[in-house]
Design a protein around this nucleic acid. Structure first.
Lengths: 327, 327
DNA sequence: CGATCGTCTGAATAATCATTCGGCATGTAT
DNA sequence: ATACATGCCGAATGATTATTCAGACGATCG
């Protein structure tokens, strides 16, 4: 009588617990086992489908917004994550990461080479990817590390996590993101280890990137960019940044000394990747987004609802045909 | 935003909890409320049917046994409650009470007058009756109280509970079950209060009774019947007892002094009730059952599986037509 | 035969969840 | 206006559930 995992027994336990509303202790007395076992039997019953819990679908996305975004900007895929008003940026990131994971996952085919940037939103997202280790990806770090104090948001960590969850290997770009001297930077780029990674980046099938702005950038935050450099970039028309590359309103990389001191995927490489997914949370990236889209830097977008709305509001009237229509 | 009980919000919470497997604390952070509120929202979601939990039916009854019982003994309804082997009598009672409640409930029409005995199994059962107070029953105590120390199994208590759960009023039989002197007994019976109850008993539409035996009876257990009386009853052929009335193998009340010292429904009254349900747990009541059935004392039977099997095994071969066939 | 796993168990414990409680806000009658 | 309900909230708390742990049992293999 012990060791009885028959469906009938599971049904009895499940019924007493869920239908009749007994506690596990009462069920335990009924079935002559310990409460611990009841807990396990119930878990098993769920697994076997004897107990099923269905939840009316919560629709985490704003499809209608998405359609307008996709049509307006010629995006391959647009995902707008619902958000109740009055959420702070940390909450937005959480939402975008949580509910964006599934659609992003769907955009990554098995055996892809994935170029991956870091950032808090991306960090949040990869931790919600399903932990099925079946995609055999090659995840490649798309930008050097911002500073030596490793934190959980670095591309390094995030990439490792992604490769681990979806299955596959991770290729680290073992170099700083910013090198004060062009000469040293070039020497690093020439290193076999770094060059190899760069080549993989050129062959990536998918890229997952965040978008920075001049005023809200990891580089400014961490002091990599000082006031002088910031002014210089501003003068050069920088409105956004992706993987360490600053670009102007038309999506062209800004020609400042910064350009030659960065280690990371080049914008021409990025443009060549068939599926570049930008992951954005917050409404303050509108200009950067518009520029990146018009410059062909990104193909798909995952963003929170207010951000999506801001983007649509800021875009020129929808009358003129979108720049890169996709029927 | 507080005070938001929209379905959408409930769906969000329910989804995070049940589908995504977050704890209530995590959901709470997500939704910007306290864990306490999440617990309440989830409860509300179940109530509203946003979350539904379905359990594959557990079949608590042995239909095939029931069919054989009903056919063999001409019972109106037979209910055999499944039981795993090796259960003790307390467990059997619990099972019979728990799963017998629904079929018994189904046998009691609204506005019935119900004659009710006490006993542990019946006690267990009434506590599993649905607490819908909608039947407007008149529950009548069918036998006096066994002793003055009121306990939870007394008809008194049990009847009160039944009336309360199904809805209706309870008529107590405020008298001892056993009176040492016939004279006093008769005086009591003549009391307006007692007589009124007795009249109700005569008009009952349903009776719910347990079955005792000489060796296993509340009266013996509590010392109401002494050794001499027991011998006397035995000599008179007593094989069972219902509501304080001892009967012989043919279901006729034993003519001993005991008969005139008991306060409770008379067997002729019981026979006249259209639906008498016997509630039995355990396999040691077979003889009493056979007698009660053949004497027309009971019409329906709720019993545990081993008890049912014992009954079938003990009954004379099924070849000869049943005594009281019902096509 | 032991030895060595692996699996299963319930007691103890850690983690999680439901409920109580007092405070606060809003509505309502006085 | 002021008292008095009523309802909702989250912190604290009490109750329940999941997990850890050490021991028991049985299968498998040398």
């Amino acid at each position: 009588m012990p060791n009885d995992y028959s469906d009938d027994r599971l049904r009895l336990v499940a019924r007493l617990y869920y239908v009749d509303g007994l506690g596990q202790n009462e069920v335990a007395k009924f079935a002559k086992v310990s409460q611990a076992k009841v807990s396990r039997l119930l878990a098993l019953a769920k697994e076997r489908g004897i107990v099923r819990i269905t939840v009316a679908d919560y629709e985490p996305r704003r499809r209608e917004l998405e359609d307008r975004l996709a049509a307006r900007f010629g995006l391959h895929t647009a995902v707008a994550i619902k958000a109740s008003e009055g959420l702070e940026s940390a909450d937005l990131r959480r939402s975008v990461g949580h509910f964006g994971a599934a659609p992003v996952d769907a955009l990554i085919p098995p055996r892809s080479v994935v170029a991956l940037a870091g950032g808090r939103t991306i960090h949040e997202l990869v931790h919600h990817l399903p932990a099925v280790r079946t995609k055999s990806l090659t995840v490649v770090q798309a930008m050097g590390s911002v500073d030596s104090s490793v934190n959980a948001f670095d591309a390094q960590e995030v990439g490792r996590t992604m490769a681990q969850r979806l299955g596959g290997s991770f290729l680290a770009l073992n170099a700083p993101a910013f090198i004060p001297e062009k000469r040293t930077r070039d020497a690093l780029l020439a290193l076999e280890q770094v060059r190899g990674v760069h080549e993989h980046l050129g062959r990536a099938g998918v890229a997952l990137v965040g978008l920075g702005t001049l005023s809200n950038s990891v580089f400014v935050e961490r002091g990599t960019i000082d006031a002088a450099m910031a002014r210089e970039l501003e003068r050069a028309g920088a409105v956004g940044e992706v993987c360490g590359r600053f670009f102007d309103a038309r999506g062209r990389e800004c020609a400042t000394p910064w350009r030659d001191r960065v280690i990371g995927i080049r914008l021409d490489q990025l443009r060549a990747i068939p599926q570049v997914i930008a992951l954005v949370s917050g409404s303050d990236r509108t200009a950067a987004l518009l520029a990146a889209i018009s410059g062909g830097l990104i193909k798909s977008l995952v963003i929170d609802e207010p951000g999506a709305a801001a983007l649509l509001a800021a875009a020129p009237a929808p009358k003129p045909a979108p720049k890169r229509p996709r029927p």
